[in-house]
Design a binder for these strands. Structure first.
Lengths: 149, 149
DNA sequence: ATAAATTAGTTTCCATCGTCAACTATATGA
DNA sequence: TCATATAGTTGACGATGGAAACTAATTTAT
């Protein structure tokens, strides 16, 4: 095994830990947990997303997704409606408060990242971004072959 | 705010989610949780590490660290001893089984990463690694200013 | 048309996990 | 020697997510 590959694995894991649930001094996203925030971003991204789609997007069961939707809804950031076409289906959509908090959280963390990377020039920033895109694309492709449901 | 910075923040978060507790099909590291594995790696890294140092390293309270050490020890991967110099202090060290499982987990995931990045040449791999190193260094530096205890 | 099967979402029970704060035991210092 | 500080442990608690049973709506088969 190429040592660089092993290093990359360890670095990704460290990065994931650092920016995951217990990083950032254990705090995440105002009154939202990291899981809630990930779900909220997905809900904003896809119009009339269903509970199951949310679960699939964040890798939760539908029961878990239903509960996370409960919590975000109780905070006022999303709204459940029932589909006019299929009465079983939930159409979840973001509220104005939801849009506001997403933007404000993203702004807050972008400031953090900006500060973190202030010593790097535009080309370096561009390179960092493209590497992260490569990693995300590659890992998603890899997941699909494993989990093709 | 430079849009690239915001993109970088979102990409890091997605990557963290994907490789964090709920990624990898929700499975991590054989019979270890991600937190346990991160702690185990730290324990291997630092000889005679104390409970508090472990807690600091993975951003847990000392109570939490004590419990995580319980779990890893009960699986046989580490061993608590009490310091000869200061009877209050715990010196935690990895066992042979611990070294074995760390190596085998790292090998398993490195294979995953290798597969994931197989289409990239050595220069690209080198670049990915150096970007990840930059991110880790930058984020650690940033944390220290915030959390200097 | 109607009964059976399927599907989306909810809920209950449960196990895991990490924090807080009280506690034990050891060390230090006045 | 007694008070204080420190390292680690423990019990109570709250948060959380999965499994599976459950409800309600839809579709399929007869």
């Amino acid at each position: 095994m190429n040592k660089n590959i092993t290093d990359i694995y360890n670095l990704i894991q460290e990065l994931a830990w650092h920016f995951g649930n217990h990083g950032f001094n254990g705090e995440c996203c105002r009154d939202l947990s990291l899981a809630e925030f990930m779900a909220l971003k997905k809900i904003q991204e896809i119009d009339n997303i269903t509970i199951q789609e949310i679960g699939y997007a964040i890798n939760y069961t539908k029961g878990g997704a239903s509960k996370i939707v409960d919590r975000i809804e109780s905070k006022g950031y999303i709204k459940r409606e029932y589909s006019a076409i299929d009465g079983r289906m939930c159409c979840v959509n973001v509220t104005t408060e939801g849009i506001d908090i997403i933007n404000s959280i993203i702004e807050e963390y972008s400031t953090y990242v900006d500060e973190m990377l202030k010593e790097f020039d535009d080309d370096a920033i561009e390179n960092i971004k493209s590497v992260l895109e490569i990693l995300m694309t590659a890992s998603k492709k890899r997941l699909n072959t494993y989990n093709p449901q």
